[in-house]
Computed example of a mutant assay.
Amino acid sequence: MNKCALITGATKGIGKSIAYALAKEGYHMLLAARTESDLLNLQATLQSQYPNQMIHYRAADCKDQKQVQALAQQTDALFPDLDVLVNNVGLFIPGSFLEEPPEALADHLAVNVLCTHYLSVYFGKKMCQRKSGHLFNLGSVAGKSPFVKAASYSVTKYAVHGLTAILRQELGSYGVKVTEIIPGSTYTASWEGVDIPPEKFVAAEDIAQAVISCLSMSKGANVDEIFIRPLDLNI
């Protein structure tokens, strides 16, 4: 029987790589992102490669809590027994606290923390009732060592780290796994055009493979966190 997954921020970079990796593993999926045209293209590609799997999508701006709630409800209607939640969506707007616009922190909190919190609680409760499931939260090295020029982003990634730790302690006793993936500089569209060879970065496919590795662990094993950085620490 196929397992099922919800992936936020599914159409680009890390999220897209995770979508391909889970599809290869036989998962039914709901893909979420802001841009419907990107979702349609990804759905069509995956559906053509894996015609026996259900690949659904929903366009949602995760800064809007009502849209996040609607996303949860649609996912629940399609997959009442969701096996895997990948909280990958993220907002990154560089700037120090003295330079950022007044709404910067609120915007980062809405996408990076409140969306992750809502979906984790919504599906975490259902997973606890079934005593199975796996939550993945995408953190950042900025949640371990802050970037002054990405102030609000760093604050919210610290919050993701704390949120994940609490979820792990609370859900683990019910048989639900919680893992934080903590990437360093990963080669995605945001790095295109820089004067650094792509092979110097972590590949998005590396992050996806880490997710698959976690899912392959025995029932009693939980990977708390995976810290993946470029070999060259100057990047």
Rank of each mutant, 00 (worst) to 15 (best):
D83E: 13
I235D: 07
Q169M: 10
T116P: 00
L71S: 02
Y153E: 12
Q47L: 12
P146D: 10
I226T: 05
A104C: 06
T35H: 11
I18S: 01
C128F: 06
I7T: 07
P197A: 14
G15A: 02
M1V: 07
L82W: 01
G90Y: 09
L40A: 06
L22D: 01
L6K: 03
G184T: 09
K125P: 11
D195C: 08
T35V: 10
Q74I: 09
T45L: 07
P183H: 03
L163C: 06
V155Q: 09
C4G: 04
S17M: 03
A142C: 15
Q69A: 14
M54T: 14
R34N: 00
I226A: 08
V86Q: 07
S132C: 13
M1T: 13
K144N: 14
K177T: 05
L82G: 05
Y122A: 07
Q53R: 11
M127A: 05
K3V: 04
S173D: 13
V160K: 03
C128S: 15
E36C: 00
H28L: 04
P51V: 05
Q67A: 08
Q209N: 15
Q67H: 03
G133S: 05
Y118V: 00
S213A: 14
V202A: 00
I235T: 05
Y50C: 05
A10G: 07
L98R: 04
Y153C: 09
V178L: 00
V84E: 00
T116V: 11
M29N: 00
L215S: 02
Q43G: 05
L119G: 03
Y20P: 02
I14G: 08
R58A: 10
